[in-house]
Design a protein around this nucleic acid. Structure first.
Lengths: 199, 199
DNA sequence: AAATTTCGTTAACCTATGTTAATTTTGAAG
DNA sequence: CTTCAAAATTAACATAGGTTAACGAAATTT
């Protein structure tokens, strides 16, 4: 793989405390595959087994569910320097319930489970990285569940645009509504009130 | 610590793939502290720093938030062989937003962060355990967020009692309502409909 | 630029859930 | 066993948010 593709991921690991030799860097570069994806392209569809975890180099991915009534519910947006995937399917080889697709033209690095496990054996520092990643993910999910229990849709919307202004700029409002668990028309109503009353 | 207190935790680690020598077992036993707690006793209060992660030997803990209007929202129940704590506060030393108290007389094992970190250095197998623990926790949170986006209160209630029949037996309904994010009167209504229509 | 599709807004109406309060049931403590 | 407190139920009413549909504005495609 070209250096320019793997470099951001190496930086990512190092900025989270991993200490990587040149050999390590080569091993990592060999384990990940670079892919360039078109807008609207799927990287995972419900029913598939998630064979890869995906690191976003550029672009924007969306992870969503389709319920029995056919409605889409967005679980997560993944922008540059974030991950996307379904850990459940990845580690059990069972079919995923999630769909992941590109909201923009997107470039990613992907790693298969076998390769990730080998990587973690060969580079113990990465073990620490993944423990930290999952731990922080647990902390973030705690906040998200807490918000859904404690806050109104209006409060959750304000929190969202303050916390993820960049995503707010890049995705249409009806997708933000879906992420917040409300109908597009409801978000419109909320925005109307919020902006009318002086932001 | 007495063997009978540490044994369940050692079994817990081994059942998740850790291979532990006698020396390891002793190190672990020395790192955890046993505590017996009365019903209603707090093990963590909002504003405190979470100095311990807690493994439940016996009893039942509840983790909850109090919002600005003074309402309680239950985030989690922890029964035998589960953990309780606030990872955010534990790892940052910042004050927690959560309260954890005992719904029953409860016995626990607790470990301070410094001791846990030492443990993970001395027993690499535990590193793998914690990565697995957090990863599974992420998977569980994904399901919980998915349910809150896709399912009605009725569906979430049915799922809860099917998945956690034991907790359902041990905690009052208004606490289950709080966990589900609905008012006690609403849960009553839901139960009325559900049981009347033949379960 | 025109045409077409997607998106956002608004309004009318509907439904699930919240709120409060009264009443009954259950459970704990003396 | 009795008493008292906590929990559950029920009903009346209030409200946030859902649904649908119509319309106008953007954005994309041709």
């Amino acid at each position: 793989m070209q250096e320019k593709y793997i470099k951001p991921l190496l930086n990512h690991f190092e900025s989270r405390g991993a200490v990587l030799s040149d050999t390590h860097n080569e091993i990592i570069g060999a384990a990940f595959q670079y892919r360039k994806l078109r807008k609207n392209q799927y990287i995972l569809q419900a029913g598939d087994v998630a064979r890869y975890e995906t690191y976003v180099l550029k672009g924007l991915l969306r992870t969503y569910l389709v319920d029995e009534k056919g409605q889409e519910h967005i679980m997560k947006f993944s922008i540059e320097d974030w991950w996307a995937g379904d850990l459940y399917s990845y580690y059990t080889n069972k079919p995923t319930s999630y769909n992941i697709d590109c909201l923009e033209e997107t470039e990613v690095l992907q790693i298969a489970r076998e390769d990730l496990e080998k990587l973690q054996t060969e580079i113990p520092g990465l073990n620490h990285y993944y423990q930290l990643l999952y731990r922080n993910s647990v902390i973030a999910f705690n906040k998200r569940v807490a918000a859904s229990l404690c806050n109104t849709a209006t409060e959750r919307y304000i929190e969202f645009i303050e916390r993820y202004p960049e995503i707010d700029q890049r995705v249409p409002n009806h997708q933000i509504a879906s992420y917040l668990g409300i109908a597009p028309a409801s978000l419109s109503r909320i925005r109307g009130q919020y902006f009318r009353s002086g932001r």
